[in-house]
Design a protein around this nucleic acid. Structure first.
Length: 543
RNA sequence: GGGCCCGUAGCUCAACUGGAUAGAGCAACAGCCUUCUAAGCUGUAGGUUGCGCGUUCAAGUCGCGCCGGGCCCA
């Protein structure tokens, strides 16, 4: 529709002797009385044409030749907006198309099957996932869903490291707890992992092996058992949120297969690497960075930058055409270096899209809870899911813009869980299902020869209009990754539906009208259900 | 000290990339169930968009300077 209007406006500009190549923008007006689409083209061009914007708008409009079966009204308003209103006929036709393509309504193939990787969560297995990880987990999964809906072939990947200092300390923490269980009195260092799960893992080992592991090194059975149990736990948590990864990528494999060394060699070959003070430096200054960065410390241990670069090179070598990284804001300073390195190594860094989400601040009794896995003062994602349910968790994390800091008051979240907006949206779906059941019972549910022209009230037209926006919203969200816009849209759909419900009796004695309104209900259910599928919440048939 | 993000109703947050009267939910107040689910609907109240300059037809949105919070780096 925008295309059509653009062509028409463009033709009108041409006939006025104005360069029709100027970008002509359309958007949905906030107020319904301003029509269905509005353009500010006259105001944009006014200065250049040295004309009063209203005058120019009038000129453009009087040169327009609109198809009256599509556009019912064109008006100049305010400081020079041109407002277009579409015909009811046009909308009813679109509604028919929605109903003919229920499963796929909102899907598109603009991705062209592009091989896409989305990396998210990527927490090392040193403890259970926290509420803080939840935002990234839900966001990454929903981004993946959106990419699938827009025709990308998506691989969800989880990157972790089981070989670093953290993991060594984890293994030793388990070892000490184990020795303690064996009756040895050993001081437990404060900077070791304090969580109760460490003791559980130690207990499992003691049950299985008795006291025979007393001489076992921390990096042996202790670390291995800890990694396995914690990872099982993490996967279980993710599954509870409906998240499943196709691939878990171990950073350590990059050392074992020599890719770390290869990356160093490649950087050296391009003179982007040098040794100084016993450390290996990455010459980011040569790539526009402010300061060179250490990539291998004098101890021989690499900083995270080096494996991150090698890992991204590996992504390119696996032929991903689109690479999406979902990171917390703590990574914000590091990724420019990674992208610069990729570019220097001859890869098209434009294929990488880094999505940064701000942290979640947890409040309990009005106080900020500082999260630390090591100190074990955190709220686990599991606890939260158990408390409010997976749907609420997902919706809560998705309904806000990722660039904003999110305050999460646990007490309030628990209290308000029945007042959560997610129920409002789901209730609309349950209500529709209930209407359908009623119609079936009364045998009024026929869907043959339905006359959609019987849908005449403002409430019905409002509902049709908003339902038809769904594909555009999906496309928009997949392009900008602003998922909260989808949540907001679904809420609007629910609102319009609830209003329709209160004003328009669906199942009535008027058989024809009943059929038409049932179709509208069905269309609403399609949009809600497809939208719920994208954001990963359930579609309850009753509540 | 430097970089990035944020500051909007009592609380949590939107505002379609600079547009028309800044909107939702929760909390508060007043109404609506003999009819398809009241987890709903209708209405009232609530704002100097942290502060100050600037850019222009138009600024919550862009620029500069302060104030305050978060994350990262030395």
């Amino acid at each position: 529709m925008k295309e059509y209007l653009r062509e028409q406006v463009s033709a009108s500009l041409r006939s006025l002797g104005i360069d029709p190549d100027t970008p002509i923008g359309f958007e949905k007006p906030r107020q319904a009385e301003h029509g269905d689409l509005t353009s500010n083209v006259a105001m944009v061009l006014a200065k250049q044409q040295k004309k009063n914007p209203r005058q120019l708008a009038d000129d453009i409009v009087s040169n327009l030749q609109m198809d009256p079966s599509l556009v019912s009204n064109v008006q100049v308003a305010g400081p020079g907006f041109i407002n277009f209103t579409f015909t009811e006929k046009f909308y009813r036709k679109q509604l028919g198309e929605l109903l003919a393509n229920q499963e796929t309504f909102g899907r598109s193939d603009i991705g062209g099957g592009k091989k896409t990787q989305v990396e998210f969560v990527s927490a090392n297995p040193t403890g259970p996932l926290t509420v803080g990880h939840g935002r990234g987990a839900v966001y990454g999964d929903t981004v993946s869903n959106l990419l699938e809906w827009t025709g990308h072939t998506v691989t969800r990947e989880y990157y972790f490291n089981n070989a670093g200092r953290q993991m060594r300390m984890l293994g030793d923490s388990v070892r000490l707890r184990y020795l303690h269980l064996c009756g040895e009195r050993i001081a437990f260092p404060e900077d070791y992992y304090q969580g109760g799960y460490i003791e559980e893992i130690a207990a499992h080992l003691r049950n299985e092996f008795g006291d025979t592991l007393k001489a076992e090194p921390a990096e042996g059975k202790f670390k291995a058992q800890a990694e396995k149990e914690i990872f099982d736990d993490i996967k279980k948590t993710l599954k509870a949120l409906g998240i499943e990864f196709q691939n878990f990528f171990n950073e350590n494999s990059l050392y074992e297969n020599g890719k770390i060394q290869q990356t160093i060699d490649e950087l050296k070959k391009r003179d982007l690497c040098y040794e100084s003070e016993g450390a290996l430096w990455f010459k980011t200054t040569a790539l526009g960075g402010e300061k060179d960065k250490v990539i291998v410390k004098s101890t021989g241990e690499p900083t995270y930058r080096l494996p991150d670069i090698a890992y991204h090179v590996d992504k390119f070598q696996r032929d991903f055409e689109f690479i999406v990284d979902v990171f917390g804001s703590d990574h914000i300073a590091t990724y420019p270096d990674i992208l610069a390195a990729l570019k220097a190594l001859g890869y098209n860094e434009q294929k990488v899209r880094v999505l940064i989400h701000q942290f979640v601040t947890i409040l309990q009794d009005g106080e900020v809870v500082k999260m630390s896995t090591r100190k074990a003062n955190y709220i686990t994602l599991d606890e939260l899911i158990a408390e409010v349910g997976a749907d609420v968790v997902r919706y809560f994390f998705l309904m806000r813009s990722m660039t904003s800091h999110l305050n999460f008051d646990l007490g309030l979240a628990k209290q308000q869980s029945d007042e959560n907006p997610v129920y409002y949206v789901q209730y609309a779906h349950a209500r529709i299902c209930s209407i359908m059941r009623k119609a079936e019972e009364e045998e009024k549910a026929g869907n043959e020869s339905v006359n959609l022209e019987l849908l005449l009230t403002q409430h019905e037209l409002d509902l049709i209009k908003i339902l038809l926006q769904f594909p555009e919203i999906v496309e928009y969200c997949a392009g900008t990754f602003e998922i909260h816009r989808l949540a907001e849209y679904l809420q609007d759909v629910a609102t319009v539906f609830h209003k329709f419900y209160h004003n328009c009796r669906v199942v009535s004695d008027d058989a024809e009208l009943t059929k038409a309104r049932l179709m509208l209900c069905r269309a609403t259910r399609v949009v809600l259900r497809n939208g719920f599928n994208v954001i990963g919440i359930s579609s309850p048939t009753q509540m």
